[in-house]
Amino acid sequence: MKTLAALSAVGKDQPGIVAALSKVLFEKGCNLEDSSMTRLKGDFAVLLLISLPPGLGLEGLQKELQTIAGQWGLTFSIRALSPEEASSAGPASLPHTLVVYGVDHPGIVYRVAQEAADLKINITDLRTHVTQGSQAPLYSLVVEIEIPGEAALQALQKRLERLRGELKVEITLNPAEADEL
């Protein structure tokens, strides 16, 4: 069974970060199994799930990464995934997308995320945008969630209804259906 590792790195954005990181991984014979990389204002953030070739331990990789991180000003961490983590498909769930938008104020993400956490609803992706509104900045939040079952879905709908009034934001919950084109 192949060894899987999770790698995260963040640092001041500049051209060449992705090339430098992926070059090391390529030269060490690693595969990129999954990745998410994005720029947040001036910083660049990298999340990678990599598989290591037979014979390569985490230590061997770590040294090379340390050098690259030093050169490019990145803070990084890497950890091996246990076989259970690596093979976990997760429990069956109802995938949904939650859209929240309204006048920007502190606590929107926290309140929404806490409601989800209380119901054992898992957040699998979250993006936020702050844009110009008519009077004040507009905050929009899109969250992809996995709801463990029908009861949790109904409970979430009830809680969101209350949150809508409390936070004075719009909230919609849509099933995340696949597109059939």
């Binding site: 979250l126 993006r127 945008h129 844009t131 899109v142 992809e144």
Partner: peptide, 15 residues
């Protein structure tokens, strides 16, 4: 109903 209400994925909203 506003177009944001119809978003189905976190990758579907752009500045």
């Amino acid at each position: 109903v506003l177009f944001l209400d119809r978003i189905r994925s976190s990758k579907d909203l752009f500045e």
